[in-house]
Write a protein that binds this DNA or RNA. Sequence first.
DNA 1: CGAACCGTTGAGACTATTCAACACGTGTGG
DNA 2: CCACACGTGTTGAATAGTCTCAACGGTTCG
Lengths: 202, 202
Amino acid sequence: MLYEGEAHSSAFILRKGWTSSFKALPSGGQQIVDFQIPGDLPGLRSVLYRAADHSIEAVTLVEAAEIRASDLQNVFSEAPRIATAVLWAASRDEAMVVEHLVNLGRRSAEERMAHFLLELGERLNLVGLSGTTGFDCPLRQYHLADALGLSPVHVNRVLRRLREDGFVTFQKGRVEFHDLARLKGLCKFDTAYLDQKEPLLR
Amino acid sequence: MLYEGEAHSSAFILRKGWTSSFKALPSGGQQIVDFQIPGDLPGLRSVLYRAADHSIEAVTLVEAAEIRASDLQNVFSEAPRIATAVLWAASRDEAMVVEHLVNLGRRSAEERMAHFLLELGERLNLVGLSGTTGFDCPLRQYHLADALGLSPVHVNRVLRRLREDGFVTFQKGRVEFHDLARLKGLCKFDTAYLDQKEPLLR
DNA sequence: CGAACCGTTGAGACTATTCAACACGTGTGG
DNA sequence: CCACACGTGTTGAATAGTCTCAACGGTTCG
């Protein structure tokens, strides 16, 4: 879809489907930076920053609208408030990356998994794609592995433990929360960083 | 200095000294997201995003100029090219966070350390604070631990191994590269993500 | 029917952590 | 001036967490 190193000057608005943004490593592995769900703007950073410093790949079939760099430029000149809104969106992205960073740096495998699933549920909730009990999830265990910095084998074990302990199940494309409160406690989940409100500047 | 949760609507231009941006964890630990060196803009995101989603702390004595949110807003209206430049700076920050994320997710302790020291050297080089053989560094081993997601004890062992293997020394406030090429090979260091050039939009 | 992908499980090896102890330098109060 | 606490760096030993390798079952699809 969109690969590292290409000077690609388009972003997209994702209407349907999921994508992942990741960095490929010389060793052959990859680190997934984030998943995009409907409503997100994959590739936003590549419009502003010279080289796409990471790649984007479709996880499911995708329906997206292109935003060309030149369009963005015009809008910026004519409607500075939109510039602000875009900057806000970029900041929100970065906040999520930061949370992901904390996830990898200072949490155990179980906590990472719990936090990841809760964040995903919360984000899907904001765009109406998740109920309180669970959500449909097209990801594979190896997606989780690349996102959480774990081996696929260990992802499997962690999921098993969370399932056997009655926290959450991840099976056949569906995530079901069985004890949301206890799960949130497990990883000290706090949604503050998702900050759904509008930009500060107006 | 600037703490999480406070709705602080100022950013700073750091003139002299170092700061760190980090997230404190309920468990008592903390994950350092980045260090800021002279020329950086600590707190930029907190201007645009409602709550400061992470904290900033001085590492050394610091000299900084404040940028108020209202000023930024005026500049945005009157000079959209500056809006672009700010967005570019934010994108660069995010690119570094992403690289840090990869560091934590998919590299061993030695690779992390090597990559971290090389990145720091590169950044300091861009602002004239580093030579090719090494640089002055006010960080403690526990700073490295919080940044790299390692225990302080392990940081010490890793530094010892890198020193004994002739890669690099980190002692008494000074980093000395003894075999830059081999060190870059160790962690596959690639500066592309630092992308020193100006914004794409113009 | 076979190939490919995905999920599952076990065993053993390796990495990093925790706990504990000690050395060294610095600043402080008696 | 000495005694002491404190921060920092260093090292060892035991432990916990995660990885790798290997094997196997189920599904889907050609």
